[in-house]
Amino acid sequence: MNIDQKIKILSSKIVSNFWGTLEHVNFNFTFKNGKTENLTHEVYGKNDGVAILLYNLETKKVILSKQFRMPVFVAGVSNGFSIEVVGGALDEGESPEDCVIRETEEEVGYKIDKITKISTVFLSPGLVKERVHLFIGAYKEVNKTKNGGGLESENEEIEVLEFSFAEAFKMIATQKIIDARTILLLQYLKLEKL
């Protein structure tokens, strides 16, 4: 059965367009047994995003950030603060590579130019349509341009953190790091023996 026979979208209604777009999509779905059901799912998202783990092979350290995240707060975890890799949303017409270089300087104050793309992933494919482009990038102290901390115009207050590889991996086990992008990229570093 091809996709046109399996799924037929009947309607799509935007119910909120505040920060991202929340859409109700009504469709008919035909199961393998031939039965067709009418379903409505919510789809949430905005522009695709990027995330990068900065690592220093000489010092065996990584740069992470700590910032307030309302969903984490509402879930009652870590007083709403999340330790995570640099990340952000693509601006209109911006490439993932240009975005991740811009976000790195804005959030943690490092100007880097050599990055490696690891993958593009959906973090919550049952609800969120945003794809996240994952990168790693080497940094050295000479790459530091300013203190970082995010953009005041975007209401960002970001604490820049530097941890040894070993400390960062321990923080996964102790659940001090709970961000999926950060865990994926730290595990990549470990698997690749960087």
Rank of each mutant, 00 (worst) to 15 (best):
E37Y: 14
D91K: 14
S95Q: 09
G45V: 11
L90W: 07
G80S: 00
L64Q: 00
N33M: 06
V74M: 09
V74Q: 08
G88M: 10
K35M: 06
G34H: 11
S95M: 07
E42I: 10
I83V: 12
R102A: 07
G93W: 02
G45Y: 01
D98R: 13
K66P: 10
S78G: 08
N47C: 04
D91T: 02
T104W: 03
T36D: 01
F29K: 15
K35V: 11
V74D: 06
A51W: 04
F31M: 07
V62H: 11
V72I: 15
I63T: 10
E94G: 11
N38D: 00
S65C: 08
F29G: 12
L90H: 06
G87H: 02
K32V: 10
K66Y: 01
S95A: 12
L39G: 06
I63N: 09
K61Q: 12
F31V: 09
V50S: 11
T40G: 07
K32P: 15
K66Q: 14
V74P: 05
A89Y: 05
D48L: 01
G87C: 05
G80Y: 00
N79R: 12
K60L: 05
E103V: 10
I52T: 10
L39W: 05
N56R: 08
D91W: 02
V43N: 01
G45W: 07
S65W: 00
E105R: 13
F29Q: 13
P71Q: 07
S78V: 01
E103K: 15
V86S: 07
F73N: 04
V74F: 02
I52E: 02
E92K: 15
N47T: 13
P71L: 03
K66S: 12
V85H: 02
N56S: 04
